[in-house]
C-alpha cells in the first residue's frame, strides 16, 4: 500500500471519514505519521475554541475579581480558585460524571402552551463536554493573568487618563484595557501553549473516544500499545507539538508586536517561553 493511499484513507479518520478500521498489523511509519496527524485536528479544535471563548470570559472574570463590590468579587475569586487549585485531570472526571448523571431524555421546560425539551445527551461527548471543561479552565487561568496585569497597570497611566478627563468606560477602554493586555500578553502566550498541551488529556480522562476518533496522543498510545515500541509514536507526537508551539509563538508574537507598536523595537517586551503552567 502506498503512502499516498494511506494518507487518503486515514488523514481524516479522527473525524470519522475514510477507512473505518484502524490498522491492526504492518504498521508503517506512514500509518503512524498520518493517523497521529489526523488526531491533531482534535487538539487544535479543543485548543482554539476554548482559547477564543475563554478570552472573553477571562476578561469578565478578571474585572469582577478587581471589582470593589463583594458579591461580584467573591464568585470570581472562587471560580478562579476552584479551577486553578485542582488538577485538570480531576475536573475532566468530575464534569464527565455530572454530564452522565443528567437525565438522558433531557429536561422538560414548560413554557405555558408549548413544552421545550432540552437535550443533554451531547454533553457526554468529548467534543462538547471536554470543550466546556477546557473553556472554564483556561478562563480561570487567563483571568488570574489578566487580573495580575490589571493590578500592575502603572499609576502614571491612570493619572494621565484622569488628566485628560477620561473616566469610567472611556478610561477603561482606552487606557486600562490596552495596558492590561500589553502587560499580560507574554504570560498569556504561555497559557495558550499549555492549554494546547492540556488538550492531550481529554481522551485519557473519562471521555470516551467515540468510534476510536481520538486526538494525537490517543492514536500514539494506540500504536505504542500495539507495537510495544514507544520510540516511534511518541516522538512523532512530540514533533507535531513542537511545530504547533512554534506556530502559536509566531501568531502571539505578531499580536505582541501590534500591542506594543508605539514602543521603539529595542525595548518591546519579548515573549519568553516559560514552563510555568501545566495543570
Amino acid at each position: 500500500m502506498s503512502c499516498l493511499q494511506i494518507i487518503g484513507d486515514y488523514a481524516f479518520r479522527s473525524l470519522g471519514y475514510g477507512e473505518r478500521l484502524l490498522p491492526r498489523s504492518d504498521f508503517t511509519l506512514c500509518h503512524q505519521v498520518t493517523l497521529i496527524g489526523s488526531g491533531l485536528i482534535w487538539n487544535i479544535y479543543f485548543g482554539a475554541l476554548a482559547l477564543i471563548a475563554g478570552f472573553f470570559l477571562a476578561n469578565a472574570v478578571a474585572l469582577a475579581r478587581a471589582s470593589g463590590r463583594f458579591w461580584l468579587r467573591k464568585p470570581a475569586e472562587w471560580f478562579i480558585f476552584v479551577f486553578r487549585g485542582s488538577p485538570l485531570f480531576i475536573q475532566f472526571f468530575l464534569f464527565y460524571e455530572v454530564f452522565v448523571l443528567l437525565p438522558k431524555a433531557g429536561f422538560d421546560i414548560p413554557l405555558g402552551l408549548i413544552t421545550l425539551t432540552v437535550e443533554t445527551d451531547w454533553l457526554t461527548r468529548a467534543w462538547a463536554g471536554a470543550l466546556i471543561v477546557l473553556f472554564l479552565n483556561t478562563a480561570a487561568y487567563s483571568a488570574e493573568i489578566f487580573f495580575g496585569a490589571l493590578q500592575s497597570v502603572p499609576r502614571g497611566d491612570i493619572e494621565a487618563a484622569d488628566a485628560f478627563g477620561l473616566s469610567g468606560w472611556a478610561r477603561f477602554r482606552r487606557v486600562l484595557w490596552p495596558t492590561m493586555l500589553r502587560l499580560a500578553w507574554p504570560a498569556y502566550t504561555n497559557e495558550a501553549i499549555f492549554l494546547f498541551h492540556a488538550t492531550t488529556l481529554v481522551f485519557f480522562s473519562g471521555f470516551p473516544a467515540f468510534q476510536q476518533r481520538g486526538d494525537a496522543l490517543y492514536y500514539a498510545n494506540y500504536f505504542a500499545d500495539k507495537t510495544f515500541n514507544p520510540f516511534i509514536p511518541y516522538p512523532i507526537v512530540a514533533v507535531y507539538f513542537i511545530l504547533l508551539t512554534l506556530l502559536l509563538t509566531l501568531v502571539f508574537g505578531r499580536v505582541n508586536a501590534r500591542l506594543n507598536r508605539h514602543l521603539p523595537s529595542n525595548i518591546r517586551p519579548r515573549i519568553r517561553l516559560r514552563a510555568q503552567l501545566i495543570r
Binding site: I193, H197, A198, T200, L201, F204, L217, A220, N221, A224, F228, P230, F231, Y234, V237, A238, F241, I242, T245, L246, L273, A275, I278
Partner: peptide, 16 residues
C-alpha cells in the same frame, strides 16, 4: 518540556 506536553513524557518514559 517547553514545546511538548508533559503527559507525552509520562506515557513514554514508563515504557521506555
Amino acid at each position: 518540556v517547553r514545546g511538548i506536553p508533559d503527559i507525552v513524557f509520562f506515557l513514554f518514559f514508563v515504557i521506555a
